[in-house]
Amino acid sequence: MSMSPLAVTAADPPVWLAVLMRVHDQLTRVGVQLAMLGLALVVCAYVFEVVLRYGFNSPAQWSADLVSYLLLFITFMAMPQVTPNGGHVAVTALLERVSSSAQRASARAIAIGGGWLFVCC
């Protein structure tokens, strides 16, 4: 007869925290939807620019600025969705070749260095 490990359950969060977490999740979903809309606008602005530039030989003066602002907007609207999943772009060629303890140590060092830069700069 094998013994199964005990299930560890966390206590339910306070009501105010549960409400705050639901609001945060909803805002994150709305932000992702807005980021997708922003990406569609970037595509439309580029298509509009190409058609005006090469079709009518009259480029739009505002499309590059709009795309720059939209890319910034897209980045910050999508970031809350990507962060908990660890979905950011990472170059891991070196880290994949070292042991898991070295990976944890380097992750800790990177986090401490990033925190130090945030506080000091």
Rank of each mutant, 00 (worst) to 15 (best):
M77W: 06
L71D: 08
Y69A: 09
C121V: 02
L52D: 02
R108I: 02
H88D: 03
V19G: 08
L20Q: 14
V89W: 11
A111P: 02
R97C: 03
C44P: 00
I110H: 01
H24W: 12
N85G: 08
W116P: 00
S63Q: 10
L20H: 09
I112Y: 04
W116D: 04
L20P: 02
R97V: 03
L71M: 12
S68N: 14
P14L: 06
L27R: 13
L41I: 01
M77L: 14
G87T: 08
M77D: 09
E96S: 13
S58I: 01
I112F: 05
V51R: 05
T28D: 08
V91D: 14
F118V: 12
F118R: 07
M21R: 14
G114E: 02
A40C: 08
M3E: 14
L34W: 01
F56D: 00
P14N: 05
L71T: 08
V67W: 00
V19Q: 14
F118C: 11
G115H: 03
V23P: 04
A60Q: 14
Y46L: 07
L39S: 13
Q61Y: 10
L94G: 08
M1S: 14
V119P: 07
Q61N: 13
L41R: 01
M77V: 03
A109H: 05
M79I: 11
M79F: 15
W116L: 11
I110R: 03
V51L: 14
M79R: 08
H24C: 09
A45D: 04
A102V: 12
P80F: 06
A35M: 03
T28E: 11
V91A: 13
L95E: 06
S99W: 01
V82T: 13
C120F: 12
V89Q: 09
H88L: 07
L6F: 09
T92H: 02
S2W: 13
N85K: 09
L39W: 03
V91L: 15
W62F: 10
S2C: 11
D25F: 07
L66K: 02
L52G: 11
V119T: 10
V82W: 10
Q103K: 10
P14H: 03
A105F: 05
A45P: 01
F56R: 00
T92E: 10
H88P: 00
S4Y: 13
L117K: 02
V23E: 09
S68A: 15
V89M: 10
V43P: 00
P80G: 07
V43N: 01
S68V: 11
V82C: 10
R97K: 08
I112K: 04
G114A: 05
G113K: 02
L52F: 11
L66G: 04
S101E: 05
L52K: 08
A40Q: 06
A64M: 15
Y69I: 06
Q33R: 09
A18V: 14
H88S: 04
R53D: 04
A102N: 12
L34I: 04
V15L: 15
H88I: 03
L39F: 07
A107I: 03
L72H: 10
V47C: 07
T9K: 12
E96M: 10
R104F: 13
V91Q: 12
S68T: 12
A107L: 06
I110L: 09
T28A: 12
R22Q: 14
